[in-house]
Amino acid sequence: MRVLVFQHTAGEHPACFTSLIAEAGDSAHTVRLWEGDDIPDLAAFDAMLVMGGPMDVWEENAHPWLRPEKAAIAEWVGAGRAYLGVCLGHQLLVEAMGGRCAKMVIPEIGVSPVGLTKEGRADGLLAGLPDPLRVMQWHGVEAETLPEGTTLLASNPACHAQAIRVGNRAWGVQFHPEIDEGLVGYWMGDPGNRAAAIEWLGSAKAADQFASDSAAHVPLAAQQSAALYARLRGAV
């Protein structure tokens, strides 16, 4: 299988998915959008994996590559092809397919549970996963209006659309299943990220606790990534 990866910043790379792609005998082509990489011919690929990023989904003036990225996602998903979006990639799916995202009143950051809906418990991506599912969150934007043809798969009180399916083979998850050893520590090593974590959580102590909790969550996240990637492959 050939996977097309859209990456938006150096720090938010496929992480766990990188080894899963290799172990499956698949190949990945990463488009580093923030570096000006061109989007290749979509016909050459079997699945699309879209990662997170610190920018907001509507910041097209600051990040002009968001426009062609959304167009590529709309073309891909409109053709019924297998898609998985993580965090920003989830929000891009929403906006590319006609929905709308907005700033959250209270950002969501930390390891917390999300509950599967009835549809989520029967869905090809999430069926059989624990319910509630403990996941790592770091986002200040949420899907406010879902695209036509969307199925809500998971939710929690902080953010209604935690996981969705658009059509039959395009999924978005607002959380981060991809984290591996050291990734959250790397994110927190960036002064801007750390300042945001302190602001959102209210103190440096709480931010450090978040980093510790996230590091402890890595083995469970690895299981989640493995399940999601296997099911994405099965949708191709």
Rank of each mutant, 00 (worst) to 15 (best):
N61I: 13
V86T: 13
A211F: 00
V184N: 03
L66N: 03
M188I: 01
I198M: 12
E199H: 12
L66W: 06
A127R: 13
E108Y: 09
L4C: 04
Q162W: 11
L228W: 10
A10N: 10
R231M: 03
V236N: 06
W200G: 01
A143R: 00
G80E: 10
H90Q: 08
R2V: 00
A227V: 13
K103E: 13
E178F: 05
A72E: 06
G85K: 06
V5H: 03
G140L: 00
L183C: 13
L84P: 04
G25Q: 03
A154F: 08
P157N: 12
H8V: 11
G85D: 03
M48H: 10
A22G: 02
T117Q: 09
I198S: 00
Y186V: 11
G189H: 06
H176R: 06
W34Q: 10
G128E: 03
L126F: 15
K70H: 12
L126H: 04
D190P: 01
E199Y: 02
G202Q: 11
I39S: 09
H8I: 05
M136Q: 08
W138V: 03
R233V: 09
A222H: 13
A215V: 03
W76T: 08
A43E: 15
I106E: 15
A158R: 14
P157L: 12
D46H: 15
A72D: 06
H90F: 05
K118E: 15
A24K: 02
G182D: 08
L228H: 00
V135M: 04
P107W: 04
D123S: 10
G234I: 02
P40H: 04
L4W: 02
F175H: 02
S155Q: 14
D208I: 00
G89T: 11
W187H: 04
R194L: 14
H217M: 12
E23D: 15
G89R: 04
Q209Y: 00
I21P: 00
F175M: 08
L228P: 00
T150R: 04
L116H: 14
W58S: 05
P64T: 11
G185R: 10
K205W: 00
L220N: 08
E75Y: 05
M51E: 05
P54C: 12
D131A: 07
A62K: 14
A226G: 08
A154C: 11
A227G: 00
R233S: 01
N156Y: 03
R194G: 02
L126W: 01
L33M: 07
I21S: 04
M55V: 07
N168F: 02
E148L: 08
E148T: 12
L228A: 02
R121M: 15
M136H: 05
G78I: 12
E108G: 10
D38N: 08
L92E: 06
D38G: 13
L152Y: 11
M136S: 13
Q223V: 06
P68N: 12
L4K: 02
V218Y: 01
L201V: 08
S214F: 05
S112P: 00
V50Y: 09
P157M: 10
A196N: 14
A161D: 09
M51R: 09
K70W: 11
P54L: 07
A227S: 14
G98S: 08
R32D: 04
P107Q: 09
V141S: 01
G202Y: 05
P132I: 03
L42S: 01
A96G: 07
A74R: 15
M136G: 11
E59L: 06
L146F: 07
G202C: 08
G192L: 07
S214P: 07
T151N: 02
Q209P: 00
Q137K: 07
